[in-house]
Design a protein around this nucleic acid. Structure first.
Lengths: 196, 196, 196, 196
DNA sequence: AATGAATGAGATTTCATTCAT
DNA sequence: TATGAATGAAATCTCATTCAT
């Protein structure tokens, strides 16, 4: 007996996939399980997504877009001083992770795997951070010896790795403390030139 | 047709597993492929390991042990000043990753390791770093407001994330530059108190 | 290449399993063979039964149910005299075995049924026979020294063992003769009190 | 390192096989397990037996021989009256089963299976019983209508089936009661002619 | 468009058997 | 003669995918 509810198959699949991917990892989840949890026929799954990696990809793209949007908005609202900008960006990331832990885990956690057909989606752009550092370096505000590309890249690892760990920590620190710590380890702060 | 060569099945399996896991990830590798590459019968694989995750686990345990050993040795040899200690630890990690890129990737990369049966092995102990920070903090050498546990944990993410990225970078930075950058972002350096 | 015929996978599997189990015994049969004989994909087998022992179990449950039903019906139709009741029960069992030799063999023969996962299904209830004997004993119609539970149990062995042997006998006796013999050995007849 | 003890490999294998076959059934036991439990190399197993069914066969032959021997001896010792003879035979069987429960189970239980290579060993000869019945029938001591072959065969099922059940009964009856019950159901007793 | 029974390629795992030592 | 690591055929079971309804 086909055709039951023609409504909201896609959102249901997205939610089911998010939940299962975050709990089990993409390789331990199968398309039947996603469809079952979405209360949708398997056929319907394949009508909407080529395979489970296509669904994963959509989750990741949506998440990265959302993450980028909130960061841009936060930075725009913030004081233009470099430290304030950094704090705003960090705060927005921490808040996003706290609000969407599953999406954050699925997108930035161990799901690069994605396999053969679909290439990984994550390429956490460290360009903007590097640019800011370069400008500050030119202005003599941070150590001229610093390799800004490397530092930007390293900071990205700090933020993502720390947030992923934080989301799974059974006894998690306060968000504000997390922001403080990340800010101290951000190159803008950690590598600033201190005058005598 | 049994017993063909009396050689060393276990090292061969370990090498084959390392190579395949690092190339494809644990879920994309199967026991047949490991046995085939090790030039060993599939039965031999199961005579040595309960399943592919047991092999992965052995690789990870060996790698973590090796990594810890070289770090301990390096730190022991180094000047006792905190920055020298940190530099020695970082140098040893960078060198280890450079020498054993596959093992480093397989052990510290995105291998959640076998889901149900075997629990993940990685628990990069951040305890030692936290202790050092605590002592320096007591001595007034680093910022009294710093949450040392959080900072130690965050630095671990920095180092691991950066090295994993470095190993896959098509145009990798010099190892020495990597050490410099990581040192600057290490809490011992980044959060030190600067006197007027 | 999925869904070829919309027919009746389950009955086909049941028939194939019955035939193969009865011919080879559960351990000499494998799921592929059952599926092949049922002209069904192996996946279809596992969509319907957890494993071959689950199929065996279903055959056994159906058979025992059928056997009990015909016995109850026969006894109900028969004269209420104990010997008539016994004869009716025996006749129904002999007729059932003759009509469904494979099912009888598979269910009551040496099928310990699947070792670990599924427990054997046979528990040929000897309760009813024991009850009848107890009543007759109370009425002084059968030997007061008889252990009725033991006798009921022993008779069950007689009937099942004899029928299993009969089904495989290359030169089988007449059914009527079988009924006569079993009746003579039934405790209701064999252990009745004979007055002087 | 080969060659450890050249002693008693065969008895050890026999004991190990008996124990495992009786616990698990021949199909759930494998040659490696037998060798392991016998504390003997697998190679040694194959030096003594072609496969596990050959070992099973030897156990069964030894058991049947032993069973026949004790029955013959008991019958020879007993009073020549038919009932005494029957009682002696039954008593010897009950005692044998009680003393060698594993051997009895393995030989007379659900192990006909034996499979392809080796044919089943059990063919519980009902000839002697039939002969005795025939003589008694000729002497007018038992019902002239009785089909003695069928009755002998049915009694064999009674005895074996009851003893197998008894060995596994969590709350087993007394041996003497078992003998009494079996005797009452033995054709010699159950089908004897009762004079007015 | 939605469904889910059916499919079979392929992964996992077992175990009887051999043979170099 | 005894050993047991090594072997691979064969069994079990999973799951992405199709397509008749």
């Amino acid at each position: 007996m086909p055709r039951r509810k023609l409504e909201d198959a896609k959102p249901r699949l997205l939610a089911a996939g998010l939940s299962l991917f975050s709990k089990l990892g993409s390789e331990r989840v199968n398309s039947n399980a996603i469809a079952r949890r979405a209360k949708v026929g398997i056929g319907t799954f394949y009508a909407h997504y080529e395979d489970k990696y296509a669904l994963l990809q959509e989750i990741q793209i949506r998440t990265l877009t959302g993450l980028r949007d909130v960061r841009i908005a936060a930075v725009r609202r913030a004081d233009p001083a470099p430290q304030s900008q950094a704090r705003a960006a960090i705060t927005s990331a921490v808040r996003f992770a706290a609000r969407h832990p599953q999406a954050y885990r699925v997108t930035l956690g161990r799901e690069r795997a994605g396999a053969t057909k679909h290439r990984p989606v994550v390429s956490e752009s460290t360009r903007p951070t590097a640019e800011v550092l370069r400008e500050l370096q030119a202005a003599g505000r941070i150590d001229p010896e610093l390799n800004v590309d490397l530092a930007a890249r390293a900071y990205a690892a700090t933020e993502v790795g720390t947030l992923l760990w934080w989301l799974d920590d059974p006894d998690p620190a306060e968000a504000s403390e997390l922001v403080d710590t990340l800010l101290r380890l951000h190159p803008v702060v950690a590598c600033r030139v201190t005058r005598a």
